[in-house]
Design a protein around this nucleic acid. Structure first.
Length: 277
DNA sequence: CATGCGTCCTGCAAGC
DNA sequence: TGCTTGCAGGACGCAT
């Protein structure tokens, strides 16, 4: 499932593969992928647009086109690939951008949760979902003191807060669980009950985990691949995600899995103790 | 306003 | 073996 590091890898791949290409036509095979405008307008408006740049904000991709901004969210299973020779679409290919040079950019998405939003040029800066995003989980963007202070504003489980994109943009279930393990914080601990030491550890855990995941090309679980069809390596660094029942690498206690805010949550019951109240 | 839950989807795995 | 059931989860919409 693409989280920030995986989307970033996809962005880098797309930059190399499609910048400079001009769209000749667009096919849409699953209408719900196109959130705005209508499918007909989407297909019509993109004709003749040239791809100038590809950017990322949180888990969103932003294609900067000569006449539009195209915002794309991959959600669970979305992804892009470029076909330069024969067009090989399968049942999971839902949108195809045909380029004037004869190549094709395919959007595929098994679960069909992904969404695309087309708007006028430079209007993504006024696009509400992007405006609401919190800071990037990097040391450059995530202000240390602000992070520490704002944790005290939320009386919800810290795991749930880490998944709130308006608090921090880009963390998903994997990196939230891995960050909490690294910081030795129990996922159910209310955010406003973390002590000073825990908040500091959490800041560095999040930024470290994301930095490592980005340098390792993201994670490849459930066959996730980047725009080049390559896999990432961060799954080799995972300590708790998907490891329920396995011995903790630190203390050998079996990793447990619980539900927090309807989401599967993995943690070590020995290393990640609840805050002392 | 803050929080919680159902919804969208398909593939896979577990259970009988 | 073959069927049914449940689970995976990001973000939104609606309810409380």
């Amino acid at each position: 499932m693409p989280e920030l590091p995986e989307v970033d890898v996809m962005k880098t791949g797309l930059e190399e593969l499609v910048v400079g290409k001009t769209i000749e036509s667009v096919d849409v095979y699953w209408d719900a992928i196109i959130d705005q405008p209508s499918v007909d307008e989407f297909k019509k408006d993109l004709v003749g647009d040239q791809i100038l740049d590809v950017r990322r904000r949180g888990k969103y991709l932003i294609f900067k086109l000569s006449n539009h901004d195209l915002v794309s969210h991959l959600r669970m299973t979305g992804g892009y690939s470029l076909e330069t020779n024969d067009l090989e679409k399968d049942k999971h290919t839902h949108v195809i951008f045909h380029f004037e040079d004869g190549s094709h950019l395919l959007y595929h998405d098994i679960r069909k949760f992904g969404r695309m939003y087309l708007m006028d040029r430079n209007e993504s800066k006024n696009f509400t979902p992007l405006l609401k995003l919190g800071p990037e989980p990097t040391m450059e963007d995530l202000d240390f003191m602000k992070f520490i202070t704002e944790l005290g504003d939320y009386n919800i489980p810290i795991k749930s807060l880490l998944l709130d994109q308006t608090f921090i943009a880009g963390l998903g279930n994997i990196y939230a669980d891995e960050s909490l393990f690294r910081a030795k914080i129990h996922p159910l601990t209310p955010a406003n009950q973390l002590n000073r030491g825990q908040t500091v550890k959490l800041y560095y855990a999040i930024t470290d985990i994301i930095r490592i995941a980005m340098t390792e090309g993201g994670s490849s679980i459930r066959n996730y691949k980047n725009a080049f069809g390559e896999q990432g390596n961060f799954q080799n660094y995972m300590k708790v995600y998907g490891k329920e029942g396995e011995a903790c690498q630190v203390c050998f206690t079996p990793i447990e899995k619980i539900k927090v805010g309807q989401r599967g949550t993995h943690f070590c019951p020995q290393c990640q103790v609840e805050a002392a109240l």
